[in-house]
C-alpha cells in the first residue's frame, strides 16, 4: 500500500470510530494497515502527527493518538 492510501485508511478508521472513541494506541493502527510492518506504521502515524492530521495524548506513562481536534482539547481542560 502506498503512503497516501495508508494515510487515507487511518483517517477513515478514526472518522468511523470518532463517535465512540477519540484516542487509540499505536498498536491499534497496525490492524488498519495490516500489510505494513509495525515500524512503517509507526513512521506513518508520526508523520501524520507532524503534518497536523493527528495528535498525541499522553498520560505520562502511555501515549495515545487521535484525529486532531477530536475528544477533549487542552484549551478546554479547565472547563467542567
Amino acid at each position: 500500500m502506498d503512503k497516501e492510501a495508508g494515510k487515507k485508511a487511518v483517517v477513515e478508521f478514526l472518522t468511523k470510530k470518532s463517535k465512540s472513541k477519540s484516542k487509540f494506541y499505536l498498536k491499534d493502527f497496525y490492524e488498519v494497515i495490516p500489510e505494513e510492518k509495525p515500524r512503517d506504521v509507526k513512521n506513518l502515524v508520526n508523520e501524520m502527527v507532524k503534518e497536523g492530521t493527528l495528535e498525541y495524548w499522553s498520560s505520562g506513562s502511555t501515549t495515545m493518538i487521535g484525529l486532531k481536534g477530536t475528544g477533549k482539547q487542552a484549551s478546554a481542560e479547565d472547563e467542567a
Binding site: 498525541y56 495524548w57 499522553s58 498520560s59 501515549t63 481542560e77
Partner: peptide, 24 residues
C-alpha cells in the same frame, strides 16, 4: 489532578506531561 492531556511541543511525542488541577 486530572490524568494526562494533549500538551507537548511541536514534533515531539514525549518530554512533556500534561497535568491539570480539577479545582482551578
Amino acid at each position: 489532578w486530572k490524568h494526562g492531556g494533549i500538551v507537548g511541543v511541536f514534533g515531539y511525542g514525549g518530554g512533556v506531561i500534561g497535568r491539570y488541577c480539577d479545582q482551578p
